[in-house]
Computed example of a mutant assay.
Amino acid sequence: MSSTYGKIFKISTFGESHGRAVGVVIDGCPAGVKFDSEFIQNELDRRKPGQSRITTQRKEADSFEVLSGVFEDFTTGTPIALVIFNEDQRSKDYGHIADKFRPSHADFTYHVKYGVRDYRGGGRSSARETAARVAAGAVAKLVLKSLGVEIYSYVSQVGEMTLEKKYQDLDLNLIDSNAVRCPDAEMADKMFNYIDEVRKQGDSIGGIITGVLKNVPAGWGEPVFDRLHAELGKSMLSINAVKGFEYGSGFEGVKMRGSAHNDDFFIDENGVVKTKTNNSGGIQGGISNGEDIYFKVAFKPVATIMKDQDSVNEAGEKVTVSGKGRHDPCVLPRAVPIVDAMSALVLVDFMLRARTNK
């Protein structure tokens, strides 16, 4: 099993949904970085369950503890170990599916691959693991802070309900002003009500999160196999429930001619090379060009629903899987900080790799 990510700034996550704890070991973090515990906790609070009635009602404080790698509030350059103890597991909620494969979950594939699986909330395949990623991503953000890199993610679509405004026309500082994490108040209200209606019906719904990375210096990326957009795509597709990734003009770009799609260069008033348009999404040849990097991440509907579904058990017998327990009707609001975290982990690794090339 691959639980490690990164080349220089490496993270290894551990733990299961209903185990004692989840956590992460970070190796390669530079020494002397101010370790802002309050900031890291705030990032975890953005992901934790129980934030509103449109999220799972599992109650986890998601408070973290530092086991190593920090001394007098600064990183020491040695491995940083962070742990988040689970507090509100209800393993009994999963007893009824101990030998059943839940549709569109990892139950069947984990059983085939390993011959054993933790049926309590999916064990290692649970999105509970992403709490560790968010903690690591918060540390990555602290490293990037000195360069002025800004990372934003927001909910731009729920089902067929789409925010048509471009990110340039939005106040991204309003992302956390509502439970949906959509920076447009009117659309956020509509999305909230829609998700709540889906919840009442015992169903789930998917959508899209838009990511925007600002002030990324030109020159980050490692062609040919570790192109910046390829690594962003890989990191996003490693998140639970993600089904698609596109950056820049994405799939819509196929409708354009090259004369319209090409981003013409010019020199701005500060003597910096810029582009008149940004269909490239801030990345050319797999390397950042200094413009905003923007992308979309598509999330499927949450697989656990409060409806009966046909399935089979480990003995190959037909069974009915009944929904039970506490689950998100829509993963998007809590996935925003996860997209942020994975963006930060990709960028900080490329930042450190760029330094080794000079």
Rank of each mutant, 00 (worst) to 15 (best):
E317V: 10
I338F: 04
P337W: 01
V302I: 09
G325P: 13
C330W: 05
V312L: 12
T304Q: 09
K307D: 04
V297P: 04
D340W: 08
L345H: 02
A344S: 05
A315H: 14
V319P: 05
V297N: 04
A335V: 03
V321I: 06
V312P: 14
M342S: 05
D308E: 15
E291N: 14
L345M: 15
V302T: 14
F350N: 10
D292M: 07
D308G: 00
F350I: 02
K300C: 09
L332R: 10
E314F: 15
N313D: 10
H327R: 12
C330I: 12
V321C: 05
D310L: 13
D310R: 15
N313P: 09
L345V: 03
S322C: 00
K324V: 01
D292T: 06
I338K: 03
E314P: 04
G290H: 01
L347N: 07
R334A: 08
E314G: 12
T320S: 12
I305A: 04
K296F: 15
F295P: 03
L347F: 09
S343W: 03
D328T: 06
E314L: 10
H327Y: 03
S322Y: 06
L345R: 11
V297G: 02
D340R: 05
V348N: 08
V319D: 05
K307W: 09
T304K: 08
A298L: 06
A344W: 02
A344D: 12
R326H: 08
A344C: 11
A335D: 07
R326K: 13
S343I: 10
S311I: 04
F295Q: 04
G316C: 03
K307L: 10
E314S: 14
F299D: 04
Q309I: 05
